[in-house]
Design a protein around this nucleic acid. Sequence first.
DNA 1: TAAGATTGATAAGTCAATCTTG
DNA 2: CAAGATTGACTTATCAATCTTA
Lengths: 146, 146
Amino acid sequence: MESVSRQGVRTWALLLRAHAAATRCMSDRLRAEHGLSINDYETLAALAEAPDRRMKRVDLARKLLLTASGVTRLLDGLRNAGLVERTGTDADQRVAYAQLTPAGAALLDAASPDYAAGILALESQLSDAELAQLGDILAKLALEAA
Amino acid sequence: MESVSRQGVRTWALLLRAHAAATRCMSDRLRAEHGLSINDYETLAALAEAPDRRMKRVDLARKLLLTASGVTRLLDGLRNAGLVERTGTDADQRVAYAQLTPAGAALLDAASPDYAAGILALESQLSDAELAQLGDILAKLALEAA
DNA sequence: TAAGATTGATAAGTCAATCTTG
DNA sequence: CAAGATTGACTTATCAATCTTA
């Protein structure tokens, strides 16, 4: 039986800390300037890139790593703020779509520079090589999610 | 003005996903087998390593990256479960200590193999070199927390 | 029956305000 | 007043159960 290495424990702890630091930084920025959570922003951004600016809730859940009910509650908030709306479906009456509204698109545009600044704050701490390495290594761990 | 790179966006997204995957894996394990959250476990482990098996709440907050009130509520739960107790302080009447109980130490021992298995599941996806690299790079990002 | 979506109860943490002690 | 700790109100997400449609 293989045992846990000191490096394993160290890296685990640092993954928790780095994530906490990065998300706190990003969250404070988006919240203060635009009243958006990270998932709010990611949702608007995902919709903006989707065909017709709309997505199925199911696909949104997968993309954001949320449960179905998490998506419902997230979209409730965005809908109350007028940033998304639920649009009628085509064929299958079970699926609901979330569609970006003009107001949502406008807020996304306004928030994007701050989001970019958050990412920049992160990548500016690393060299280009380190950034790429980090991405490659994290990609192996993220696969576990599937 | 320097702009965000594609790598920056990719790495940011992967940091979120890898963290979500890793903590979900660890959390499910500890929760199902021992009824502990990750922070519950980290708290018991921190106390076990501390002198006299006790720590100030303030220090616990720093260690766990929680606010003062977060620590209060975390310890409420552990205390109700009989895993920690608040011990009288020595000099400064303001500071409260959290002390590991025998029951807490026993549960920590019981949960440790599962915690180790969670870390092992993570590190087994990487080579030794990658694990060390990941730790070094995350350390740079985690500094931001301070 | 199964898939998508929602709801009620709950968990875990935050912030702002407050209390106590130094 | 400042520091440590707690409490109340709130946010965000989960799970389990339920409703609707395929």
